[in-house]
Amino acid sequence: MKFQAIQGEGWLLTKAEQLINWGRSRSPWPFPYGTACCGIELMCALASSYDMARFGAERVAFTPRQCDVLIEAGTITKKMVPVLKRIYDQMAEPKWVIAVGACACTGGVFRTYSTHQGIGSIIPVDVYVPGCPPRPEGILYALLKLIDKIEADHPLYKQRPKIVEALEAGNEP
């Protein structure tokens, strides 16, 4: 966050968007959706050796209501598709998705009747991690990439049309 200190103490000057992005990017709480061997790598990335909490993914949320990043690690069968979609829809905005591993990205080696060929066709994915399974470093790198993406976001600018509309109508935005 770029900021400017004014008059020695007590005051910081920054942009609201940067402040929001700073808050969001420093606490991307993950929802661990491990369905196959990538889930094991995700556990490893979360555990003490790799310690994903260093990058703000501190608290693993086991409820979609209290998470920011859906980390989908593993194969999604066609039977599982409505479950994944439902969990994504239950998450509160803002929300991001990381697809971990070949199966989550494209279906991987399982080009069969039972496997969904990539979760990108069900929910919007922000970061794809290739690998079968990817190493924990790969998952950490994906999280860092996601943090970069969050920091480059313009959360207020996106809502500008709504705010302008509200101001013109004489309401509080």
Binding site: K78, V81, P82, K85
Partner: peptide
């Protein structure tokens, strides 16, 4: 067929 006949599960929920 190995790749199925294009069955998909409905997303009604």
């Amino acid at each position: 067929p190995l790749e199925g006949k294009g069955e998909e599960r409905h997303l009604d929920y």
